[in-house]
Structure formats: C-alpha cells, structure tokens
Amino acid sequence: MAALGSPLATFRGLLRELRYVSACAGRLCRDMAVYRHVVQAFRAHRVTEEKLCRAQHELHFQAATYLCLLRSSRLHLALLRQHRGRGPRSAHDTARLVGLALPSRPGGDGRQA
C-alpha cells in the first residue's frame, strides 16, 4: 500500500490549496462546492478507532491525489507565469538590453502634429 502519511495532514493540505483556489476566484472558501464536498467527505468517513479499513485507505488515496493535483497545478502555473515567453522583443527593448538606446528622430517620433 502506498505511504500516504496522516489523513489530517492531507486534509490540512487540501484546505490550504482550496484557499488558494478561492483567493483566485475572489470568494470565500466556505462558499465553494468543492470545499463543502471535501469537508463532508472527510467528516462522513471519520473513524473513531484505528482500524485497517480498505475503504478509508481508498478515500485517503483519492484525497492525496487531489491534493497533488491542486498543488502541482498551482506550482506549474506559477513557474509558467514567471518564465513564459512573451513573443519577440522590440528593437527598443533589444537595444536597452545591451545598454543602448535607439536614436531619437529630430522632429519627434512623428506622432506630434
């Protein structure tokens, strides 16, 4: 069986990721269907005694998988935003890159009347 750690840690991780999601949507975490679903699922499958329960392991595995999906998607998108290409540079930007500036036209850049 896969080593999953404690269910409480998974639950906390999920809530943390869902808070990121709700911050993106600009809403309260409590108002989201997915938050209610996760909390309800964890509550409904809570066991009072430590028993080897296959169904519980299945649910925990699912929760851990969902946590992995949310966390990796967030990190992936963060890296994408930081490093993604923004198309070719303009001549002005390229010149600035090496500490040069494009010559300015004597009569302005033609926009003035």
């Binding site: 999601v21 709700s22 993106c24 989201m32 269907a33 997915v34 679903h37």
Partner: peptide, 10 residues
Amino acid sequence: VAVAAEWDAQ
C-alpha cells in the same frame, strides 16, 4: 465538483 473548481479557479 472537481471540474467546477477548475473553472472557478480561473
């Protein structure tokens, strides 16, 4: 629910 959360996260 999970798909809806994806659309909500945009």
